Amino acid sequence: MVTPGPTLTLLHTSPVHVPVFDGLRDQDHPGFALRHLVHPDLLARARAEGPDTVAGEVEALLKRAVADGASAVLCTCSTIGAVAESLAPAAGVPVLRVDRPMAAAAVAAGRSVAVVATVESTLEPTVALVEEEAARAGRPVDITTVLVDGAWERFEAGDQDGCARLVALAVDGLAGVDAVVLAQASMADAADRTTLPVPVVSSPRPGLRAAVLRCGAEAKS
């Protein structure tokens, strides 16, 4: 009898992330089992009322994922990532936020970190995450924030290319930074368009890698 391998469930607030993470899985972790929960309403409410207001619904979704066989859950939304991560004890499985490995990489690159976002509600939780990773690493950090005007509207209209162009232009206008954090998973395409000679880090690939490794560790324990 073949024992089924671990399953990672991803919690998204946009359907566009499903093919992105499936593609990364096929490239980096072929055959690994992914499941997707897509709830755009969570981001809409978190932006309007604050991330903590969706905690009850997120907890219910996590418990549903576990009941359906999830070995771990990866939240791909930076706005609600901290809320999801805090609910791991209630879920009973590891709950990871996709942007934590990215934040750690930015801190390792140098003291001055720019956090770039297309949605204002993402800035505060991402800054807090970078500060947390800096404290964990025992490294000083100076953070600046940039909100890219018009980029989210392009993304919502389905113009992902236009969104990435605006983000890349904003990044290339920065000076005096050691690393740039692209705060949302939806911004990842902009990383390859920038010419800034410092690390410009995005979350999907390192976040998925960390979650797959965590699933494997849980399966062996």
Rank of each mutant, 00 (worst) to 15 (best):
L8G: 15
A117K: 07
G150Y: 05
E124V: 15
Q184R: 03
H17P: 00
T144I: 08
E131W: 09
G92D: 13
A210Q: 09
C75P: 00
T13C: 09
T53W: 07
K220D: 12
T194I: 02
A114W: 10
L123Q: 12
A109G: 10
S86L: 06
P30Y: 11
T53A: 13
S203I: 07
R47F: 01
L129G: 14
L213Q: 14
D68R: 02
R45M: 04
P89F: 11
R205S: 11
H12T: 09
P19M: 07
A168G: 10
P40A: 04
A211M: 11
A55R: 14
L213M: 10
V130P: 13
K63G: 02
V116E: 12
A104H: 00
L166W: 04
S221C: 06
I80D: 09
V181S: 03
A88S: 14
R47I: 07
A48M: 02
D192F: 01
W152P: 00
A60F: 08
I80G: 14
G50F: 01
T122H: 06
R209V: 10
L37G: 03
E153C: 00
D178L: 13
A109Y: 02
A60N: 07
T9Q: 13
V171P: 15
S186Y: 05
P140T: 08
I143N: 01
P89N: 13
P101L: 01
D99R: 01
D159Y: 02
A108R: 14
A137C: 13
T3G: 02
L34C: 11
A33Q: 12
L24G: 08
A170W: 09
L24E: 04
R47L: 04
V113E: 13
F155W: 02
A106N: 09
Q160C: 00
L196Y: 10
D161I: 01
V20E: 07
K63M: 04
D68C: 01
P140S: 06
V146L: 08
R35S: 11
L196Q: 12
R100Y: 00
T145L: 05
A134I: 15
L42G: 07
T145E: 13
D68T: 00
V119Y: 10
R205I: 02
A134V: 15
V177G: 13
V198I: 13
L34A: 11
R136S: 15
S78A: 12
L213N: 09
